[in-house]
Simulated assay, not measured.
Amino acid sequence: MTTILVTGGTGTLGRPVCDRLRADGHEVRVLSRHSPPYAVDLRRGGPLLDRAVDGVDAVVHCTNIRRGDKDAARTLIEAARRAGVPHLLYISIIGVDRVPLGYFRTKYAVERMIRESGIEWTLLRTAHFHDLVLQLLQGLAKPPVMLLPKDVRDQPLEVTEAAARLAQLALGPPAGRVGDMGGPEIRTFAELARSYLRASGRNRRLVEVPLPGRVYRGLRRGGHLAPDRAVGRVTFEEFLAERFSPHGA
């Protein structure tokens, strides 16, 4: 039986990764700030982190700390080195090296830290998950008019598909950077918004707005898309149908 540590194991991605590994009969250690026995804040580390990484076959790093990602990665890498962890997996985002968004730059910096850590590693970049796109659209729909970035597209991916791929990679040897995972369709934000409004039964006027700056230009050019890696199967409409169904709500 393989023992895998999943950081951020109670989150949107970490939870289905853990579920998949357990379903396949593997021992899973869940590391999260509020989840004993490994309730650890990765920005600080400590003895519990050393216990969590001790003797594991792989670490899947799913923790996502908006302010503190690099500190968390540094702490985890140091603990993994001390424990002699043989395999460190990291999930990143398509386009972190092409779109000059601050959050993307942080993810790219963590990628470099892992590549230079001295630990054998695997890196998977994915498109944005359906859940994140839904959260963004829900926020934009609060006013009576939805303001959307003009000419910006996205390629949302079902999180459980990414989780299944991560679990598969965790059970194999370190593979370096593997093929990106994009969702099955590239859609404009206006199209995604219309699908959300239909599924949720809401009525909003849509207005597409051009935005200034390098980030917007990078997104408009599609730096965060992977049309040649449209490997996901679940469409955004299928995700919405499940989420807004009576049993999924």
Rank of each mutant, 00 (worst) to 15 (best):
V99C: 01
L101C: 06
L169V: 02
T2F: 13
F239L: 07
P210M: 03
L140S: 02
L13V: 10
D54E: 15
P47C: 03
L123P: 14
E242C: 03
R204C: 13
R15M: 11
H247W: 15
Q135Y: 05
D57W: 12
G183I: 07
T75Y: 02
A163Y: 02
R74I: 00
D71I: 05
P36L: 04
I114L: 04
F244A: 01
L157V: 15
V6R: 02
L211T: 00
R177S: 14
E208R: 10
E191Y: 04
D131H: 12
Y38N: 00
A163F: 01
V96R: 06
I114E: 00
T106M: 11
V145L: 13
T3E: 15
G139P: 05
L123C: 12
V40H: 09
T63E: 03
K107M: 09
T235I: 14
V209E: 01
L197D: 11
E191N: 04
F129S: 12
S195E: 15
T63S: 07
E116F: 12
G9P: 06
G201I: 08
L13H: 01
G9R: 11
R33Y: 05
L49N: 07
P16G: 08
P246N: 02
L136W: 09
T3I: 14
R22F: 00
V96K: 05
A230T: 15
D54Q: 15
R187D: 09
V159A: 13
L48V: 07
L166R: 03
G232A: 03
D54Y: 00
D54C: 14
T3N: 08
P144D: 02
P47T: 13
A79P: 08
H34R: 15
V96A: 01
P173M: 07
